[in-house]
């Protein structure tokens, strides 16, 4: 059959739109996973048992199972519960929850590592425990885990390809769309790979900048 990349330019707008959606879903899911991670961490460490235990169970389930399986659960589970969400939203929730669990593990360790004296110092100033957590402990813990959370976000970008299976028309699905018309899988998957690689490089550069900035503010 051979290779023929001349079919690619005709689908460039489809593909580039896919890139935009890939970036959009990555950023949206990254935000969900970041704040979700903080929330889960605080719950896992400080909430009363009847909240803590279910959340721990959920985290255990999500750490032990494939993302793809989780995406199927969320996509079809929401339908089953009568909640009809657009594929994009379901994708953001799935990716976001999955990585929130991983981020939460990092943040829990970091919170425990922040000096106990920090909490005590804040309490002696008259802060409540919640205030001390919010204003003193968590900001420090989060800053400490920015590099490993960054690595999770890089992984999130690549895992965002999986939401193509639940119908989010990001880069992978856009490539498949073009392939459906042209029967040229190699060409379009190769182009998609190159584009993912470029977005990945860009994202690494952004994360390095953020790391440098937060490292400076110590």
């Amino acid at each position: 059959m051979g290779l023929d990349f001349s079919v690619v330019p005709g689908y460039l707008d489809t593909i580039l739109l896919g890139v935009i959606w890939t970036i959009a879903i990555t950023v949206a899911a990254a935000v969900v996973s970041f704040f979700g991670g903080i929330l889960f961490a605080v719950i896992a460490l400080y909430a009363p048992w009847f909240i803590r235990l279910p959340v721990r169970f959920f985290a255990w389930l999500f750490m032990g199972t494939p993302l793809l399986l989780q995406l199927f659960l969320i996509y079809f589970g929401l339908v089953e519960l009568g909640i009809d969400l657009p594929a994009f939203v379901a994708g953001v929730i799935g990716l976001g929850l999955h990585f929130a669990v991983y981020n939460s593990e990092l943040i829990q360790t970091a919170i425990l590592a922040v000096d106990k004296g920090q909490m005590e110092a804040a309490r002696t100033l008259g802060c409540s425990r919640g205030q001390a957590l919010r204003k003193v402990v968590i900001p420090q813990a989060v800053r400490d885990v920015i590099p490993p959370i960054g690595n999770n976000m890089i992984a999130l970008l690549k895992d965002s390809a999986l939401v193509s299976v639940i119908g989010v028309s990001e880069l992978t699905l856009s490539a498949q769309l073009a392939i459906g018309r042209t029967y040229r899988p190699f060409e379009f998957y190769a182009v998609a790979a190159v584009l993912y690689y470029i977005v990945n490089l860009g994202m690494e550069a952004v994360l390095r900048r953020i790391e440098r900035k937060t490292a400076l503010s110590r």
Binding site: M1, S164, T172, I179, P185, Y189
Partner: peptide
């Protein structure tokens, strides 16, 4: 490491026959 495993898999399985 810079590209999704899913794309690598598709490239090999669907694109492989072309090469």
């Amino acid at each position: 490491r810079g590209t999704p495993a899913l794309i690598q898999l598709f490239l090999l399985y669907f694109g492989g026959p072309q090469i």
